[in-house]
């Protein structure tokens, strides 16, 4: 077990280092100088200024040296200074990371609860042989999975924000009233948009898992033992259905991080995804490096935890690996 853990940890570390090198190299390969871009016409009129800033951000050094310098700073807990924003990368990311986490966590809760619910209902429909309802629900799920998030965001904004006026469509809070309720109201539409695709995907997976489990040996055995349907369902079937739910939760994180770019863009949510896209466009290297590093670490850690949790939920896997 310890050996497995160590090997897995080593692989994760390798992935993070590799990923950060990839990003670092890619940024240096992009045509376009961040200093020129930032200074615009002033940079053209003032080459000394460009030189000064290039030196200040160490961009005149060879790329491997820059990377080592960056890693050295990182070890001391410093992500460097943004080129474009008058802030350090750490300051830039702190607030945005919290905002994205709030949005992501809410969307995750909605997706897990909603997805599991839909999956269970759908499995029951199959179990009770209610085919028409089953087809309708499956069809609806697939439509919701196919719809682009920005289209969904537009539709939700038009309906709930503009026509009905029930919910605020943008930002994180109102200026005057920024109590908890106000913040929650702002959270609804972006979180629902973000949760839609992963939620319905999860719904399909849960349905498949439960349907499988209902046909599986343990369920048959349980029925044979004379247990009630409710008990069979809750104890045996749901437990078996947990595996895909947990596995998929890890994959969903990637979906949220990707999806948050468009959703944050649409709903003016001051989060990491939108900060990253803007930083890429402005060639703000330190910010891109900082945010991608954070994403890499989170993503890798989540995948690692998911791997571990297999064993906890499904005893067979634990035995197999021990």
């Amino acid at each position: 077990m310890t050996g497995f853990l160590l090997r897995r940890l080593g692989a994760s570390l390798l992935v993070v280092v590799g990923g950060s090198i990839l990003v670092f190299g890619a940024l240096r390969a992009i045509p376009g100088d961040p200093i020129q871009l930032m200074l615009g016409t002033q940079g053209v009129t003032n080459p000394e200024l460009v030189a000064r800033y290039t030196e200040r951000f160490g961009l005149d050094l060879p790329a491997p040296v820059q990377y080592l310098y960056w890693v050295g700073q990182l070890v001391r807990g410093d992500l460097g200074d943004s080129i474009v924003q008058p802030q350090s990368v750490g300051d830039f990311m702190r607030m945005r990371a919290i905002n994205t986490a709030v949005l992501g966590a809410t969307a995750w809760v909605i997706a897990v609860l909603g997805g599991t619910g839909i999956g269970v209902v759908a499995a029951l429909l199959v179990h009770r042989r209610m085919w028409v309802a089953d087809y309708a629900l499956s069809g609806f799920s697939v439509v919701m999975i196919s719809i682009p998030s920005f289209s969904l965001a537009l539709i939700l904004m038009i309906i709930f924000g503009v026509n009905l006026g029930w919910l605020p469509v943008l930002g994180m809070q109102s200026v005057e009233d920024s109590g908890l309720l106000d913040r929650l109201r702002h959270l609804v539409l972006p979180a629902v948009t973000l949760a839609t695709v992963p939620g319905f995907v999860l719904g399909r997976i849960v349905k498949a898992a439960i349907t499988d489990a209902l046909l599986g040996d343990y369920a048959r055995t349980a029925y044979a033992k004379g247990l009630s349907e409710r008990r069979v369902f809750l104890v045996h079937v749901l437990r078996n259905a947990m595996v895909p739910i947990v596995t998929n939760t890890g994959l969903m994180f990637g979906g949220f991080l990707s999806g948050s770019v468009l959703v944050e863009f649409m709903f003016a949510w001051p989060g990491l995804g939108r900060g990253l896209v803007n930083a890429i466009l402005a060639r703000d290297f330190p910010i891109v490096q900082g945010i991608t590093l954070l994403i890499l670490v989170i993503f890798t850690v989540v995948n690692f935890l998911v791997d571990l949790s297999y064993g906890l939920i499904d005893p067979r896997i634990r035995y197999a690996r021990a």
């Binding site: 390798l14 590799g18 990253l276 896209v277 466009l281 991608t292 890499l296």
Partner: peptide, 18 residues
Amino acid sequence: DVLLAFPFLLLVILMVAV
């Protein structure tokens, strides 16, 4: 492994930028 450690859309955006 490294490529899969990036969320899909972010990887694509990064690559378009390059």
